[in-house]
Every structure is written in structure tokens, then in C-alpha cells.
Amino acid sequence: MLKAAVWLFWKDLSLELRGRELLLPAAVFGLIIAMLYGFAFDGGQQVLRPMFPGLLWLGIFFSSFLAVGRAFGVEAEAGQQLLMAPIDRGAIFLAKLALNILLTLVLTAVLTPAFALLLGAPLPHATLLFLWTLMLGVVGFAAAGSAMGALTAQTRLRELLLPAVLLPFTSPLLLAAVSATSALYGKSPAQLGSWLWLMAVFDGIFILVPLLLFEYLTEV
């Protein structure tokens, strides 16, 4: 199962490296969001700076969303050849998950400094903890996005349905990520540990549960 997953991951990665069809539009979209924040919350950086954790995570979630949503979409458009291949459905999920994690991590690495720059917020001093927070949030979103992406890829309304199911689903993750980031800026820092735990639990559960359940998807 792992071998198949690695090969699939490699296939998607080389596709992405050649075409850059996911990362580039998603990153541009993220930057546009940062610009739009400036317009929507008129009042300059004094207004935006206190809201930075929330604005940053919304930006990351929305732009990651574009990348994550496409991962299974390409397979559905290719006519489900991959789904006919004699490999474990879990392997497909793992490969897509790895791709989604990689893509969203790269996106976050691009967007976080850009958001800090445009919204005029300094990054938190606890760099390692901040990176850990970013990673936990992004991995959780990628995991949930891979699961929901796989389930909605077979439907007629793929692009429309995914936000409707993924965004409420990841709301605890958003809440935890924003609260943890706020804690790094000194807003109730005692809570930081619990938020990081919550994100870790979310990540673990929604990597494992789909992996177990995807066996059943092979039947149909």
C-alpha cells in the first residue's frame, strides 16, 4: 500500500511541478485576499493588526481550499482511470493527503510572510511554536480536505459542494488555529497548549478515520 502511495504521490508531484496548476492560482488567490482585507476593513494597519491571526488563517484556509479541492478533481476529470487501478483505495488517499499537505505547506510558507507584510503585523517571537501551530493547522485542513475531496469528487456539483461540507467541518480547526496564534501574541497564552492538543487530535483522527473507511469505497 505504501509503495503504491509513494508512486501516486510522485505522479501528482511531477504533474504539479510541470504544470503548476494548483499552487500558482492558489497563491495568487491568497495574495488577492490579503489585498481585499485592506479594502474591506478600511482603516489601515492599526485596524488590521489585532485581527491578524484570524485574517491569516482565513487566507490560508481559503487559498488552501482551492488547491485541496483540485487534488481529487483531476482524477474525476481524467475519467476515473485511477479508481479502476488494482490498488488499495487507502493508498490513493495517502498519496493525495501527502500532496495536499505539501501544497498547503508551501502555500502557507508563501502567504504568512506576505500577510504579515501587507497587514503590518510582526510575526510572533516564539518562532518554533508558531511554525508548529502553522503545521498542525495546515495538516488538519489538508487531511479533512482530502477526505471531503474524495467524497465529493464523484458528485455532479464537485466545486460547489466541497466548500459547503469542508468549511463547517474544519471550523474547530480554524477556531483552534486562530486561538493558538492569538495566544502566541500574548492573548491568554495559558490556553496555547490545549489548542495545540486539539489541533493534533483533529489531525490524528481525520487522517486515521478516512484511511480506515476508504476501504469501503473500493466496493462501489
Binding site: 467541518f169 474547530p172 490556553q191 489548542w195 486539539l198 483522527i205 481525520f206 478516512p210 469505497l217
Partner: peptide, 19 residues
């Protein structure tokens, strides 16, 4: 499969909102 996944999510939502 979707129903099972979201049912697991609901307690996490509750916990996060409570904190």
C-alpha cells in the same frame, strides 16, 4: 462514510467552542 466522519467531528466542534 461521510455520515461517520461528520459524527466524529461534532464532539470536537463542541469542545473547541467551549474552550
Amino acid at each position: 462514510v461521510y455520515a461517520l466522519i461528520i459524527f466524529v467531528d461534532v464532539p470536537i466542534v463542541y469542545l473547541s467552542v467551549r474552550w
